[in-house]
Design a protein around this nucleic acid. Sequence first.
DNA 1: TAGAAAAGAGCACGACCGGTCGCTAATCTC
DNA 2: GAGATTAGCGACCGGTCGTGCTCTTTTCTA
Lengths: 197, 197
Amino acid sequence: MKKGEATRSRIVGEAARQAAVRGLSGVSLGDLAEVVGLSKSGLFKHFDSKQDMHRAVVEAVLDRFRAAIWLPAQALPPGRARVEEVFRRWMHWGETEWVESGCPVMAISVELDDQPGDLRDYLQKGLKAFRQNVVDELRLLRDPPLSEAEAQAAYFQMKSFILGHSDSRRMMGDLDAERSANAAFEALLERTSCASA
Amino acid sequence: MKKGEATRSRIVGEAARQAAVRGLSGVSLGDLAEVVGLSKSGLFKHFDSKQDMHRAVVEAVLDRFRAAIWLPAQALPPGRARVEEVFRRWMHWGETEWVESGCPVMAISVELDDQPGDLRDYLQKGLKAFRQNVVDELRLLRDPPLSEAEAQAAYFQMKSFILGHSDSRRMMGDLDAERSANAAFEALLERTSCASA
DNA sequence: TAGAAAAGAGCACGACCGGTCGCTAATCTC
DNA sequence: GAGATTAGCGACCGGTCGTGCTCTTTTCTA
């Protein structure tokens, strides 16, 4: 069972690309099939329904997110180095791998955040795991370690700057967005790592 | 011409509500007509096309955004008081007037940011005007006033915290989101207003 | 290499999509 | 209150949506 898996992942990849632009619900199976070079009915040998495909897309996007951002950072020494790597990779991910659409995790989050259900829960679970990883790393910014609450506050700001960067860059066309985000993040690290215990 | 305008604004209001949830392109004219209590063809006496309705929705949302956030803050003394009011109102707007969907400006921004065209440009223009207003106010945080660049950096962070709050609250279900955002914002104001010239 | 299993094509379906037309009825203007 | 304007309806159009069904071809396995 080799060919099938390859085709399936081609479909999911293209679906993710389109979903990042038009939203999950904006992906038409007809369009998708055509781009991938299949008939519409051929798609259904790989998915039971459109919802089933949505699930596959979310899974794939989360996997790629982890692979592009969290995993490479683990090769670095714990603490600040890893956190900076995560931030840099996170910010760049949307601009290099998803040029036309921006970060798909963001797009799908905004789409699903007001649509309760299994898929939303699954995405939330994945994002929470990622957050906890980063929070654990953030605690190491200081010696003695930051409290859980302090690290969560830092994560909140870190994530906010990523979101802010995306809005500035994509919606507002601000060419300085990256510099603004980096400056804000570096200042955050300074404050956080020097704060008294 | 009274009745027509009233109906039109009812339509636009409902369309905005639905667009904040499903996205502009996710609003079906059939559904919309039914909820408003019209026939589908009746809708077309008020709009030339779906695109025309999108434009009306974006206009209305920007108007309500300004009316709910910027205008009331102008009643306060310039500088910090206004800025704090804007932040508080901005954060609450999505949770009070748009309970089921979150802030529509955010939703529509994310939807349009990768779809170049008139509508996107119009939205961008409105948001830039709002930003400039807030930036001007932010400069007054310090005496002597902050530079334009410093104020823009502060605005970047301020906006980021609003976005972060929305993500935390709506996607991650974080009940402490508001406190995190407020704390981050107040610290930002402290840093900014005390920075040496 | 034969045969099972998977991949995919072709077609048709019912529902719904945005949109038009002509008609009636309500509303506004003078 | 007469007449013009406009709001709104119902029927309908061509197209596309997601999703079945059957049938053929390719691919994997023993």
